[in-house]
Computed example of a mutant assay.
Amino acid sequence: MKIKAAMLLVVSLVMSGCTIHQTVEPAQIDSGHRLCIVENPAVREGFLPEFISVLERKNIAYEVVGDSAVPTSCEWVARYTANWSWDLALYMSYAEIKVYRNGSLDGEAIYDSTRGGANMNKFIDAETKIQELVDQLLHVKMASLFSRSFG
């Protein structure tokens, strides 16, 4: 009986180390504002187009800028990074998108399967995951069209 309990404990500890983490703290961009995306040339080619596709679907104005050329007029700035790993197949093991408003962090999305080990759920469709992260991260705050006070 003690051997079974010890084996169960060992298996539980090993499997808990094979977790995938995803956290999203949303940012609310004011309607009509532009998001400046700082292009990261170290990230695989397909990441940025998937990021942009969500912005277009949400009607969020954007501009892709270089790290050294972020205009001072950019109130909202997004920075991203992502890594791919090999384990029987190439897969996106880490993605991070941070959104800043006037230089202060306003929201972030992180996907981390680097400790996924034997967890087969790490073999995700990267395009779908990128879209999911951006969709959950960025929300448009609509200005009230009918802002009158009654009383």
Rank of each mutant, 00 (worst) to 15 (best):
A78R: 01
E75Y: 04
V54G: 01
I52P: 00
G46D: 11
V14T: 11
I52Y: 05
E96Q: 10
H21M: 07
V43S: 04
D67Y: 10
Y100M: 11
Q22H: 04
V65E: 11
V70K: 04
Q22D: 07
V77P: 02
L13N: 04
K58N: 08
T19F: 12
E25N: 13
W84H: 10
V38F: 07
I97L: 15
G66R: 10
A95N: 04
Y80E: 06
G32N: 05
P41A: 10
S68I: 09
V54T: 11
E50C: 03
T81W: 03
R57E: 15
I37R: 07
V99H: 01
L48W: 05
N83T: 10
T23G: 05
V77I: 14
N102G: 05
S16Q: 11
A69H: 09
Y94A: 02
F47M: 07
N40E: 04
I60Y: 02
A82V: 06
I29L: 15
P49A: 09
E96S: 11
T72H: 12
N102A: 15
N102Q: 15
S73P: 02
I20S: 02
T19W: 09
D67C: 00
S93G: 07
D67R: 14
N83E: 13
H21R: 13
V43H: 08
P41V: 09
A69V: 06
G46M: 12
R57Q: 12
V77A: 08
T81S: 14
K98E: 15
G32F: 03
V54N: 01
W76A: 02
F51V: 12
E50K: 10
E50S: 13
E39C: 01
N40Q: 04
G17W: 08
I60K: 02
T81V: 07
A78T: 03
I97M: 15
V99K: 00
K98G: 04
R79K: 14
F51Y: 15
C74T: 05
T72A: 15
R34M: 12
I52K: 10
P41D: 10
A78I: 08
R101I: 03
E75V: 13
E50F: 03
G66P: 01
P41N: 12
S68R: 14
A61E: 15
V77S: 11
I37T: 03
H33Y: 05
H21V: 11
C36L: 01
P71L: 02
K58R: 05
S85Y: 09
M15C: 13
I37F: 03
N59E: 15
